[in-house]
Write a protein that binds this DNA or RNA. Structure first.
Length: 292
DNA sequence: AGACTAACCTGAAAGC
DNA sequence: TGCTTTCAGGTTAGTC
């Protein structure tokens, strides 16, 4: 599922297909709650606009347009951005194995029923496709001065977290430390995978009440978060359920997981069996010996 | 206000 | 074999 590293990898790979190009045609599926801005309005406002930059805020992507408007994209759980025809050779090299579902092993570089937004460009080159099987993703066009509550709510970008600020937020909370990490108004970009992995790296049990995590531990956690996120970006993100890179490549970070979805397997550090529990309806994985 | 829960959605996997 | 149930989870909105 796309979290900060997957969104950042997507941003880097899709930016060359967007920035500097002029949108000539917008095709969408029928209106649904996927569209925070209705398809008709998207079409009218986007056609003729040039994309000036593609930025990331937490798990959101923001395409800045020459009109001053911004196109907000969220990949949700199963969202994918692709360019048509890009790296299509990779499609032929099937059978690499891995943890991807068959569905995800054949990325759609052509629109299918799950492709909700297609952007065609004036230069006639590759189109940009936004595909999302579960439709938890979002598309919204923001006016030049429109303030987005979704963006306004975001806390510090997780790549820039520091221990002191984390400690300040943690000491006020009665909830589990993991819940704090997943709170986008505190840390923007962390999801279930990297919350579990960072807590393992910091040696902290996810169920610990946040207010009982001291400053030293918060510093350790901040370092762990930054390191885990950076490493994942460097390896192309985690291809665990549906995520693959815009060019069809698997990410590499799923092979570096220490705890996430390793229930019952031996801890790579101490050999104890990884435990699974639930925190706030979310599956949570940790090593009962390494994490206190 | 913080904490908790339901709802949105679809496909894979497990259960029977 | 085939049908049914469970599970996955980011975010918002609603309740207490």
């Amino acid at each position: 599922m796309p979290e900060l590293p997957e969104v950042e990898v997507t941003r880097r790979k899709i930016a060359p297909l967007l920035v500097g190009r002029t949108i000539a045609e917008v095709r969408t599926t029928r209106n649904s709650y996927f569209f925070l801005t209705p398809p008709g309005r998207l079409r009218r406002r986007l056609e003729g606009r040039r994309v000036e930059a593609l930025e990331r805020a937490g798990k959101y992507l923001l395409a800045r347009l020459d009109s001053g408007e911004r196109l907000l994209l969220h990949l949700g759980m199963t969202g994918q951005l692709f360019g048509t025809g890009v790296a299509s050779v990779r499609l032929l090299s099937a059978g690499r194995g891995g943890s991807l579902s068959p569905e995800a092993q054949v990325p759609s570089f052509r629109p299918d029923v799950h492709t909700h937004l297609c952007l065609g460009f004036a230069d006639g080159g590759p189109e940009v496709l936004f595909r999302d099987v579960r439709k938890f993703g979002k598309v919204q066009l923001l006016g030049p001065d429109e303030r987005s509550p979704r963006l306004a709510r975001l806390g510090v970008d997780a790549l820039g977290v520091n221990g002191k600020a984390l400690f300040a937020a943690a000491r006020e909370r009665a909830t589990a430390i993991k819940t704090l990490l997943l709170d986008q108004s505190v840390l923007a970009g962390v999801g279930n995978i990297y919350a579990d992995e960072a807590l393992f790296a910091a040696g902290l049990r996810p169920t610990r009440p946040a207010r009982r995590v001291d400053l030293i531990e918060c510093r350790r956690l901040a370092v762990a978060l930054r390191r885990v996120l950076r490493r994942s970006i460097a390896t192309g993100g985690s291809s665990i359920s549906d995520y693959i890179q815009p060019d069809g490549e698997d990410g590499g970070y799923q092979d570096e997981r220490r705890v996430y979805q390793r229930t019952g397997e031996p801890c790579r550090r101490c050999g104890a069996r990884i435990v699974r529990t639930l925190i706030g309806q979310r599956s949570t994985h940790y090593c009962p010996r390494c994490q206190r």
